[in-house]
Computed example of a mutant assay.
Amino acid sequence: MSAAPSITVASYNVRKAIGTDRRRNPQRVLDVLHEIDADIVALQEADKRFGGRGAAVPHELIDDHGMYKPVFFGVKHRRALDRMPGGKHVDSLLKINTRNMGWHGNAILVKQHIGVLDCAALDLPTFEPRGAVLAELLIDEQPVRVVGMHLDLSGLWRRRQIRAILDAVSRRPQRMPTILMGDTNEWRDVAGCLKDLEPDFHIASTGPSFHSRHPVAALDRIIVDKDLHIAAAGVHMSPSARRASDHLPVWARLTG
């Protein structure tokens, strides 16, 4: 992104759009995203966990909002019902919405002017289903790669997952500046899975983002490779953000 203007990126664990009042309210998530006004957003827990595992923030609501478009990964969580005779009609019969936004809850939203060059859904090693999403984007004729992730609660599996993500990035046919964003579930600043990112990446100093009512842990992180400069970074702490999820969104302004 040499000589390119700055871009703002953000990461937000939206907790399936369930706020600290235990109510599901997707509109609050969009209101917070409007406040941040980031060019690219990585979401975690963007899909419901049970039933059809459809998007926690309905596609129609995002379309009406008009600010963002989701990157379409073309994947669907398979269920036992899908393998049964007539399984493709089960969703309509049960009135279940299975139109997910991403992969294992990870999704990427981009502003309307940003082009999508390529994308991929990544499977990650773990005991429970986990994944990450990768999008290669074009911003003002400059390519940038973004990975959205939600890592395991186990430190051992987090390190394996980071390694799998870095391996997937290294296998991409084109080299471009890369940004990793998401809920790392890593309480330590410079240890655990984050240490494996050295020396090629550096971590934005955003600050603690969890719990949104009284943030004490920097679980949500924005990690950028050394081709990018972190001009500014922080946690978005508006009253709306404190209600919309148990995590606060983190953001960073980047330049080439």
Rank of each mutant, 00 (worst) to 15 (best):
F201N: 06
H59Q: 09
R78G: 05
N100I: 05
I230W: 03
A17N: 08
H77R: 13
F73N: 01
T98P: 11
D200E: 11
D31A: 14
A191W: 08
A218Q: 15
R83E: 05
G52N: 08
Q112A: 09
R175G: 10
N185F: 09
G66K: 08
R221K: 15
H77Y: 12
G207S: 06
R15H: 15
D31K: 01
R188W: 14
A3T: 15
R78H: 06
T255L: 04
S238P: 07
D64Q: 10
G19Q: 08
D196T: 06
R24W: 08
G182Q: 09
A135Y: 04
R213H: 06
F73T: 03
G52V: 06
R171N: 04
H104F: 12
A135C: 07
L254R: 04
G256D: 05
A38H: 02
L124C: 05
I108L: 11
R99W: 02
G256Q: 07
F127S: 00
F50E: 12
R172W: 03
I96L: 15
A120K: 08
K195Q: 12
G192S: 05
Q27I: 08
I162N: 00
G52P: 11
Q161W: 15
V29C: 09
V144Q: 00
D140K: 10
E186T: 00
E136Q: 11
V29D: 07
